[in-house]
Design a protein around this nucleic acid. Structure first.
Lengths: 199, 199, 199, 199
DNA sequence: TATGAATGAGACTTCATTCAT
DNA sequence: TATGAATGAAGTCTCATTCAT
């Protein structure tokens, strides 16, 4: 089936090789030559499938985001905020664990490559925040959470998710996604203080 | 009178210019020529004060971390965990607001430049996590917080701090550090759930 | 047909161009750009075949020495000292006349470029002196020459050979290698004094 | 006396420092900065006494040649060819031994620096050869030597002298100038062959 | 006169991209 | 379609020389 579409498979071959190399060295230290070698093809062939190095990265990033969105989207469909948070965190951890190379590229190189790419990443981030914000707003309306500053809460939530990629990808952290997600969700929902209530 | 120490001031002039340019373009897109122009000096002069481009960045990073540590260290001395968290968050927000260019460099370029620099940044991060972990351990012993997974809590806390640099530096977020810090601290301590029960 | 081995021929093309330029200007005044122009190729192409400027010179030197050794080695095989001297001098003169550019590089730039290269040249020189010394020692044992200080004799012999490259290469001296070699050999063997007595 | 003429002494100070550095590193690897440090003065001061780096070398070379000429000239005044040769060789060896730094500069860097300097060195060499040629011609007329090719003889003689600088300066050869000179002179006059006579 | 901070032309080298085969 | 040899723009760094003090 994959062999039926050799062009697409060669394209994927290149993308996979690029993911390896970008992840290993970072975008600016990756050479087209090295990607070609990793893919087992000639340097010029890459340009048959991608306009250039930057577009190759863009393509990888876009595909990664699609994969990420798909992974999370299917998981966190309905339910209470607590269920959604749990699913979201679990999905995020699972994605990071399952796609270390993609994750490294996605969170390491995004900001420093190119203005256009920065804009794009910024837009993606804004979309995600938009989604979070609505999720929290809905939960607020439903009375599931206290009336906190939604803007701050969104940033905090995003930060919590972001904070896990490095420990996971760099190999320091090995957790069971389900267990960790539940713990983290509980921290967010109920805090860490021993004294119930206050403020 | 301003130039009591002309050598030091020239060095600082270069560093300031480099901070501008690195922050604006990112390390890899910054040219020594451009830094020189920004500083209003000749290209060669930079090399009288710094061995090379990479060392110039390193110097900036180290100075930034010293400044950051000093800013936070003086603030969050004693008190309960709640006081410390409040001070830490407030200091962090304030630093990001007061040193946008530095912040952008510190959190954007760190990972992708150079192996040595990556090691250094990694060490700094580990130190900070070590500090957080001890802070939480102490609070646990004192009974200030529930017995949660310290490793996860540390990562979460780090992520929350990290999450604010981008909104602040990119200009989207304008908050009063004191107010925001208190709100964020409360989220961490008491959670966002409306139901007072725990898991 | 001429290009049976295009890769090797391109390499040679570059080396030939480099020999021209190095010979004309000396190593330190030769620019990679100029070598590329001389070869009729782009600047970057040189780096496809040689790691850098210094290694390009090294390669030329090594090839030159191989050529030189081969030229002399085949000529001066056996026979009496007188025959050997004659062959050696003739071969040396012929080499200088046939390879003026190489000769200029070999004897002009060797000492001043680079420590490693200096070591290499020194080793080559020592090898040649070793060879001369054995040749003279053998002749002494055979009673072909008087018992003179072998160390001094070797240096003298080396100097005599060396002395001819400049006049030949700079274009002042045009001699028939065979005739000149015989004359020089006779000077060495029998001296220039008219009085047949010795000291 | 030296102190009475501070300008001249400072000039000499610089030249001495330059001789040290040029000899140690070779012209192209010597930096004006290093020469200044060696002289214990400021970099700019060199330019008060010399127009530039090249002219500093030229000055050193010219002074060296004057010293060399003076050393030899006073020694080899009159007498037979044999006496002259003996004095010339002895003087040459002595000069090389007494002025290793100068010698290294004189014989190592001459050819590769600059077209003007090359011309100058060439002229000097031609003058010396002119002198040798006349010396030999005179000896021929007096019947002191056989009628050999004067041109070749001159080159040979020059080569013999030249051949000794490297062994002496590089530290391998330690000889008594008088003894060695006599031995070398005898080789030249009477050859090394054991069979007296032939053409 | 002496200085040394400042300069910028110039050289090497890299590597994304092209294009003839 | 696939290739990889060839390219040259671009960037870092050096160091002889200048000049204000």
């Amino acid at each position: 089936m994959d062999v039926n579409n050799p062009k697409e498979s060669k394209r994927d071959l290149i993308m996979d090789a690029a993911i390896q190399v970008f992840s290993r060295k970072g975008y600016h230290h990756s050479k087209m030559e090295e990607i070609a070698v990793e893919a087992g093809i000639g340097k010029g062939t890459i340009y048959e499938y991608f306009p250039g190095k930057l577009q190759l990265l863009q393509e990888i990033m876009e595909q990664s985001y699609r994969l990420y969105d798909h992974s999370l989207g299917s998981i966190m469909a309905g339910g209470t905020l607590e269920d959604k948070l749990d699913a979201m965190i679990r999905g995020h951890l699972q994605f990071c664990q399952d796609n270390k190379d993609l994750t490294r590229i996605l969170f390491l190189d995004t900001g420093v490559i190119d203005e256009e790419l920065r804009q794009w990443a910024w837009k993606k981030k804004a979309e995600k925040e938009q989604y979070l914000q609505e999720m929290f707003a809905q939960a607020t309306r439903r009375g599931e959470i206290k009336p906190v500053d939604n803007r701050l809460l969104t940033i905090v939530m995003g930060g919590i998710l972001m904070s896990f990629w490095a420990p996971i990808v760099m190999g320091n952290l090995q957790v069971d996604a389900g267990t960790a997600a539940q713990q983290i969700k509980n921290m967010i929902m109920h805090g860490i203080s021993n004294t119930k209530g206050s403020d």
